[in-house]
Write a protein that binds this DNA or RNA. Structure first.
Length: 335
DNA sequence: AACTCCGTCAACCGCAGGTGC
DNA sequence: CGCACCTGCGGTTGACGGAGT
């Protein structure tokens, strides 16, 4: 007796998601919030397995994710973290709040693996006179690891402090679960200027472009499907699609309101600066609404900053022979 | 122009862990 | 404790598009 499939194979659609399906899913989650994935297919009328819905959401539709164009910074972090953590993509992704584990995994397999192999092949040719650098690299990694352990401890402590009832929590938002998708307008204190809320808007605007160009011929869908669709269409109708890919203006009803605005109101963010590739966790959508999602928000902003700092300080410190403990000392002051 | 090869990435699959009863 | 259910994770697959022949 094999393990029963996670969902009924019959009548379950597989393969790429259509824009229409995306919209239905987003609309549903907008209403009910993420979670209870089991109920999603039945409640939305989507002929998809619950897993597929969750995956689609977490890897593609979820707000706050950035897609493509990994920066050098991110690349470095991934390489470091992969060396440190192995193929624990979810753990690695937790250090890169805007990236999904799937994205990182793909990037690793398609780009970084080869890159590193190339580098390795290149360095092997010069290995004779580079023994010392290899050694220093090993030392450096060891130091990094030690620091990581130390600061994981510190971060935990900080979390405990932050969540202790006596102190006002820096992590807890004023968001109630009942708020569902509607994000509290209270922004993280650190980020008053810009919000790195890139991808979902772009993603959805992208899918809208396609969808609105070829709208469903007839809404022969089920009632609830139609309902969710309706609610979403209401939200987006009349918006120009001014996504990064250059305004196809599929929804040329031109009310003067940009699609980004639609999603600002939808998700509660003010700025949609998708060009912001800064890894510093100046904002993490998870920190507000999505902290209950797939990406555990157990890493405080400070902690992320530390990781961030380490990554860049490491090389510099290795060159300068800087005492790492000094850095640790500095880091400790964060808490 | 037609075909093949290759890289990329979204999505699937199966297992593991957590939780509630 | 055992079971069922749900979710998360990592490995893998397959569709697609572009480059090369």
């Amino acid at each position: 007796m094999g393990r029963p499939p996670c969902c009924d194979k019959e009548g379950v659609k597989k393969g790429p998601w259509t824009p229409e399906e995306d919209i239905i899913l987003v609309s549903y989650i907008q209403e009910h919030g993420p979670g209870n994935w089991r109920a999603v297919p039945t409640n939305t009328g989507l002929h998809r397995c619950s897993k597929s819905c969750r995956l689609r959401w977490t890897n593609y539709l979820r707000p706050g994710i950035k897609r493509g164009n990994f920066t050098d910074h991110e690349e470095k972090m991934i390489i470091h973290l992969q060396a440190l953590l192995g193929n624990r993509w979810a753990a690695i992704a937790s250090y890169l709040p805007q990236r999904t584990d799937n994205d990182i995994k793909n990037y690793w397999n398609t780009h970084l693996k080869k890159k590193l192999n190339k580098l390795q092949a290149g360095t092997e040719g010069h290995s004779k006179d580079q023994g010392s650098s290899t050694r220093s690299q090993a030392i450096s990694r060891g130091q990094w690891e030690r620091r990581l352990q130390t600061d994981i401890h510190m971060a935990r402590q900080a979390l405990r402090d932050a969540l202790s009832p006596e102190k006002p929590s820096i992590l807890s938002s004023d968001l109630k679960p009942a708020d569902g998708f509607l994000i509290s307008t209270t922004k993280p204190a650190q980020d008053q200027s810009t919000t790195t809320y890139a991808s979902s808007t772009e993603n959805i605007s992208r899918l809208l472009k396609g969808w609105m160009k070829n709208p469903p011929k007839s809404s022969s869908a089920k009632t609830n499907l139609a309902k969710t669709q309706h609610s979403f269409t209401n939200m987006v109708s009349g918006f120009d699609c001014t996504s990064s890919e250059g305004a196809t203006s599929a929804a040329n009803t031109t009310s003067g309101v940009e699609l980004s605005d639609a999603f600002e109101s939808l998700f509660g963010f003010e700025s949609l600066d998708s060009s912001n590739s800064d890894l510093s966790p100046s904002m993490s959508p998870e920190a507000s609404l999505f902290q209950d999602e797939s990406k555990p928000n157990l890493i405080s902003d400070h902690f992320l900053s530390l990781i961030d700092k380490w990554i860049f300080d490491e090389d510099a410190a290795a060159i300068q022979g800087k005492d790492m403990m000094t850095l640790d000392h500095e880091n400790a002051n964060f808490f």
